[in-house]
Structures are given as C-alpha cells and as structure tokens.
Design a protein around this nucleic acid. Structure first.
Ligand code: SF4
Ligand code: SF4
Lengths: 154, 154
DNA sequence: TTAATAACAGACCATTTTGGTCTGCGATTA
DNA sequence: TAATCGCAGACCAAAATGGTCTGTTATTAA
C-alpha cells in the first residue's frame, strides 16, 4: 500500500528537529522524544540506526547526544528511508533477496514496474533533507504541478 | 518499505494478460491462473475487485469470464492500485481515516511528505495500463515529461 | 575513583497487515 | 435443469511492523 513506516516518520521528525538546532549543537533522545511524543526506546533504535549509517554523529557521554554528521543538503530522503527500513523497493522480486516469486518466469510486468520503481527512487534521492525541511506548505510543490494533477476537490 | 502488495502484482499480471487478448475476448480465472501460476481463489478475489471498480467487465455465465471494460489507455496504474489496495498513501495520517497519529500536533514534516506523496501519485496516475504494458525497457515513459520534473539527471 | 549520564545492543512480545483458504450462494446458458 | 462460471464473506496463517524490556559500554564531572 506504499506506506512509509512509522520509524521513518520518527527519523524524519528527529532529523527535522536536529536541523533546527544551532550548528554543532548536540541533542539527546529525551529532548527529541518530548518534542514529538515519541516513545524513547523506539526512538533510540531509530537514532542509533541513523548514526550507524553515518547520517548522525553520536556523542557517547553525559551531556552528549546526537547531531547531524553531514550538512542537511547532502542527505537525501532516500538515504533516510534506506537507513531505517533497509532497501526500499516497489517490487517483491528486485535487488538481491529474490524470494523466488512464483511468477518470475512468466512475468511480463517486471521491467515496467522497475521503471516506475526507478522513478520513485530518483524522486526520493533528488530531495535533500534541507529542501525537505525548508519547504513552504503553500509554494513548494504546487509549482511543480504535482498536487493539482491528483484530483480535484469533489 | 514502499512495497506493492502481491495482489496488485496479480492484478497487473491479469490485466496484462487480458490486454493481450483479442478485442472483446473473455477469459476466465482458470486461464489467467494457469498462465502465471497464481492460486485461483485469490486471483478470483482480485478480479472481482477490479470488476467491481469498473476496470473489468465480468460475464457471469458458462463460457464467461472477464474482459477489459475500458481501453487500456484509459486505465492508470494508480487506478489499479486503488482498486485493489484501497487508497494509496505514503503517510499514516492522510486522507480521511486519520488514525490520530500521536505526532500530528507537533508534526512539521507533514506538508513536505504530502508533496512527495503527490509526486508519486502523479507518477502512477500518469502511466496508463497501455503504456505500462507496451513499454520498452529503454524508451517508454520519458515522453510524458513526468520524469523531468522530478529532478534532473546529474 | 566512581557514580551519573547517555548511547549501544539485542532479545522479546503484541498488533496489524497481508497472503491465502474454505464454504456456500447466484447468474447464465446449453 | 444441471453444468459452468463469477460473487461474497468468513476464516486462518504467516509475515511485517510497532513497541517493550533487560542489560552493557563509553565518557565525564564530582
Ligand atoms: S510478479 Fe513479476 S514483478 Fe511482481 S514480483 Fe514476481 S517477478 Fe517481480
Ligand atoms: S508524523 Fe506527521 S506526517 Fe507522519 S503521520 Fe504523524 S502527522 Fe502524518
């Protein structure tokens, strides 16, 4: 059903929060947790993941916490999703762990689906964390024309 | 993790199969099931769904079966996904059944996420079943220009 | 030196979603 | 009027996800 997981949501919220801090400011889990009402334990997992994947820098000490490791413009949304969920993929058959889809031999829709998948990847790759955060609700996407095409208020 | 469900896969396979038939030719579940090794019962569900949503025409009789109700160029991939999975959505909070996401009050990522969602929707809406099926691995969707808006080749 | 603070690690369980099965009914036509 | 097909929905099993618990390790300030 093409839904982002809650953990990715948490990750993006946390990253958003961190981006709003002053340069080099470290923030601990509790602060983020309180800012958004996210259970600390699971948030911890999420941040650990981001740290392990090189998106966050952890400061492993009292008065420590996390800070962005790279400038926000160098982190894509796809990076974040990949860090949390593992590889993204529209298809059940793609990339490596091909769990032997029963249909794979007779399948004539794989390549078109891969093209769609590619487009989505590209879209996610193309959007940096910085762009993501500083987007204005009104301007932003409308210019891109994306929203208007989706349907009119009925 | 952004994965299409197996049922959508089945639906697309079946639609692909049906598109390859002669005009007005009806095909029953068994034939599709055999063509792709899909369990008949679940395929039945999927086709029923497509029929109820106006994508397929059912012929409720011996020697009956299914046929496309509309020309393939008038059916989008999004239509198919919607028919099978219900509403598509990247977000947990969007469209109607807002299951009171705990974060919704303090959430500062909703609108950017909605923009991404919009782009994906558009992309899926923009691709017709016809285009989907007849796509050459290399050419294909580029002509519609949808891709270009999503970012430039770097 | 040591106690407090914070991240790290992983097992673990509960809930939801998904894939798939079963059982029976309804429409059409030869 | 019986065979062939779709229709409908309850039902179950497996997987994915969300969330909890228990404990360990690194750093620093008292
Ligand atoms: S059906 Fe075709 S596309 Fe879908 S998973 Fe199996 S092989 Fe990949
Ligand atoms: S976090 Fe924000 S975006 Fe994600 S679901 Fe809750 S409200 Fe919607």
């Amino acid at each position: 059903m093409l839904k982002l997981t809650k953990k990715v949501d948490y990750a993006l919220l946390a990253l958003s929060f961190l981006s709003q801090q002053e340069e080099g400011q470290v923030v601990n889990i509790r602060e983020v947790s309180e800012a958004y009402q996210i259970p600390t334990e699971i948030l911890a997992k999420v941040l650990q993941r981001l740290s392990k994947k090189g998106i966050l820098q952890s400061h492993h000490a009292p008065k420590g916490g996390y800070s962005l490791k790279k400038p926000a413009r160098n982190v894509s949304i796809l990076d974040v999703i990949n860090a949390i969920d593992g590889s993204v993929g529209i298809l059940s058959c793609s990339d490596g762990h091909e769990k032997t889809c029963q249909q794979i031999d007779n399948c004539d829709i794989r390549s078109p689906l891969e093209r769609i998948q590619g487009k989505i990847m590209w879209l996610l790759e193309d959007m940096s964390l910085e762009e993501f955060i500083h987007s204005e609700p009104t301007t932003g996407g409308v210019l891109h024309g994306s929203i208007n095409l989706l349907g009119q208020p009925r």
